[in-house]
């Protein structure tokens, strides 16, 4: 660690909280004494804040307006169709902004990746084999622009049995379903 600066990948993994306590402490110690690496760390923070802001905003606006418009329309289906139409119109209007934001985010991420992979003075201690992982680091990491799918971390079916599976919604997009094999008596009222 004291022979040079922190490798990009190491810094990224520290940033993502993926290092063991020991390694994290070493990185932290280096950051405390090295302005150059601190700057790189800060730029990761800015990048993450920026991407979180834009991507989640975009997802929130686009998907939820659509989804809840649909649910609402389902609940109110006895009413006239005017409501559905107006929800669609509203959706069309709100779509433009998130798309713009997402485009800016994508452009920023792409440019940053290009800058990061451009030839530069060696900051990594690794050899040529390191280059490839550096290049993919932003794409694969927690701060990546790609929205990760929902995932079930743990489930306890208690007195029941059950299954967890995923429904594919689109290329690379899926959502989990937790299916309870309900053997209990139907329950009406508390």
């Amino acid at each position: 660690m004291n022979t040079g600066h922190l490798e990009d990948e190491l810094l990224q993994r520290y940033f993502d909280g993926e290092l063991s306590n020991g390694s994290a402490a070493e990185v932290k110690q280096h950051l405390e004494s090295c302005e150059s690496c601190r700057r790189r760390h800060r730029s990761l923070e800015r990048l993450r804040a920026f991407i979180n802001m834009t991507v989640t905003d975009a997802a929130r606006e686009v998907d939820f307006n659509a989804l809840y418009g649909r649910i609402e329309a389902g609940v109110d289906k006895a009413r006239d169709e005017k409501k559905v139409v107006s929800i669609r119109t509203r959706l069309g209007a709100t779509l433009r902004r998130p798309v713009l934001i997402a485009s800016v985010a994508l452009a920023a991420a792409v440019m940053i990746i290009i800058f990061r992979t451009a030839p530069s003075e060696p900051v990594a201690r690794g050899g040529a084999g390191r280059k490839r992982s550096e290049r993919t680091v932003l794409v694969d990491s927690r701060s990546a622009i790609k929205l990760r799918n929902s995932e079930v971390v743990q489930v306890d079916f208690g007195a029941n049995t059950g299954t967890v599976f995923e429904i594919a919604l689109a290329e690379g997009v899926s959502t989990p379903v937790v299916w309870i094999n309900d053997e209990a008596d139907e329950m009406v009222g508390p």
Binding site: T56, A59, R60, V62, D63, F64, L67, L147, R148, N149, S150, V152, G162, I167, L169, V173, T175, P176, V177, V178, W179, I180, N181, D182
Partner: peptide, 10 residues
């Protein structure tokens, strides 16, 4: 994931 519902069914 924000905006994508997950399901509990059965």
């Amino acid at each position: 994931k924000q905006g994508e519902p997950f399901f509990v069914a059965g």
